[in-house]
């Protein structure tokens, strides 16, 4: 399954990554090399094999829904690039 340049553009958009022209060309070559390598798995017969999600079979880990102390607003926002009194500030959304 070789990737086209349009595919690379689409993936970069999904990943929210702006690629420079050099990065774009490198990605085109490298991603195709890597996918070509991992495509060898398609030849393996996995019919009826159960997919592993947790290696030791842990399924759900429940805990009681108890209110516990959490960080203050100051602690949570102190690393943010931009805040105001109500929360994090971001550029225009719409």
């Amino acid at each position: 399954m070789a990737l086209s340049k349009e595919d690379i553009e689409h993936i970069a958009k999904l990943a929210a990554l702006e690629l420079s022209p050099d990065e774009f060309n490198a990605a085109f070559q490298e991603l195709n090399d890597i996918l070509n390598y991992i495509d060898q798995l398609q030849a393996v017969d996995t019919r009826g094999v159960v997919a592993t999600s947790h290696v030791h079979g842990v399924v759900n880990a429940f805990r009681d829904d108890v209110i516990r102390p959490s960080f203050s607003k100051e602690q949570v926002t102190k690393n943010a690039p931009s805040i105001d009194e109500r929360g994090f500030r971001v550029p225009k959304v719409i």
Binding site: A15, A16, L17, E18, V76, T77, N79, A80, P81, S82, F88, V90, P91, K92, V93
Partner: peptide, 20 residues
């Protein structure tokens, strides 16, 4: 948004893509 680097941009999507 919450920590680390932010690159300035006019829209939110653009800010994500440039920051990353």
């Amino acid at each position: 948004v919450r920590y680390g680097l932010r690159e300035p941009a006019d829209s939110l999507q653009e800010m994500y893509a440039r920051t990353r």
